[in-house]
Design a protein around this nucleic acid. Sequence first.
DNA 1: ACGATTTTTTAGTTTTGTCTAAAATTATTT
DNA 2: AAATAATTTTAGACAAAACTAAAAAATCGT
Lengths: 233, 233
Amino acid sequence: MLNYSTSEENYIKAIFHLQRQEGTVTTNELANELKTKPASVTDMMKKLKVKKLLHYQPYQGFRLSNEGSKVALGIIRRHRLWEYFLAEKLKFSWDEVHEVAEDLEHVSNKKLIDKLDEYLGFPRVDPHGDPIPDVNGRIEISKKICLTELALNIPATVSSVSDQSSEILELMEHKKIAIGTKLEVKKKFDFDSSMEVRINRQPAFTISRQLAENIFVTPSLSSLSNGEGKRNK
Amino acid sequence: MLNYSTSEENYIKAIFHLQRQEGTVTTNELANELKTKPASVTDMMKKLKVKKLLHYQPYQGFRLSNEGSKVALGIIRRHRLWEYFLAEKLKFSWDEVHEVAEDLEHVSNKKLIDKLDEYLGFPRVDPHGDPIPDVNGRIEISKKICLTELALNIPATVSSVSDQSSEILELMEHKKIAIGTKLEVKKKFDFDSSMEVRINRQPAFTISRQLAENIFVTPSLSSLSNGEGKRNK
DNA sequence: ACGATTTTTTAGTTTTGTCTAAAATTATTT
DNA sequence: AAATAATTTTAGACAAAACTAAAAAATCGT
């Protein structure tokens, strides 16, 4: 696996994330995501195409090649392992880890990352509940859905949160919802899309549409993991 | 404290280290240290002078300003804390940590470094025995001398090793010499500058000139620390 | 379908950090 | 104290990654 510049890595990572939603990524989307100009995106796409990291015909949008996806998964692995380290060992709070990991992820020493992984006990999810690719870039795909889509009275475990602001963190702490929390939806109100949620056997409480839209859960049909996923070799 | 580029930081760090030996640093010395060309050095010196990080008149050599020294100590603090982390937590061996820390040191998030420091228990020396600057950039200056200069029969503690190759590590492990080892010199031979050294009450053994030149010690007139310097808050 | 709008690409600059080759300065030697 | 040698600086170029402005292609609305 070759080495790529910080800038190249940021493009690759952004394409990978945007691809999840849409099938193909456009110049404007990427420029917007990276806070850069469309012209800069086109320049970089030409470079990455030459390096065979993506498929790209002028005006047609782009998609990572297999090689490109492998590179992206490597970057995401580094990012999420550092996030885990920052939260678990250095006691950074939930909403602070992303920014710091943005810098650390570009230190691409394979041995460093593999030893860090081992030191952390091979965690499978980062502090936001997103899965961490393993040494081979394999990722555990969990069938997570948005809380707004969870059917009534189905027990589910909070698996990730898409917003990462300190504001949502404050609200979630107040409501006692965290990654790994088991809950079920008791009622939904069409008027404002708010919902009533219950944790364990405690009294149900209300959650706004805005909050529900940012919380993702794994429905636990039978009984699943407790979300604190930690595994020692 | 402003932010500097990786390249600027490497120049600042190199000047700081070269200054220790000589009072003022020359263009060629620096070019040689950084494996770059003299012309590139001159370019960068002009930039750093504008930023008031060093004193420099054309053809006169350069010296860091107070501000420049502060910046250098910050970089060295980051470097050595990461080295400590790599050796102590990730179990990297002694001769591998420097290279990895060269990359990590450029992630300049103050909170990250201060929390790392705390997590590691505020270590005072890195795995090579070099002192780690504290939050305020203060460094513990120990009166260390080269083993070749140590007088006969003076007990001393190995405080640092200048070479960092795996070859010297292998040799030192075989001779059972490490940072913190207490020893004294029993005999010196003028012919080849080899010497006989004794650890504790064990039989003395021979050390070559080449090895002795790379080992630095702190003479322990009375009794000093055991070199395993570790302090928890 | 065709003119208008939006999106994307091209062309030409800029900045940072590097380089080579040549000029300027300092140091050394006889 | 010249002449020579070594060091240092200047001048001009280049590559990476960004930008602006303008041209080209695709898409949309009627």
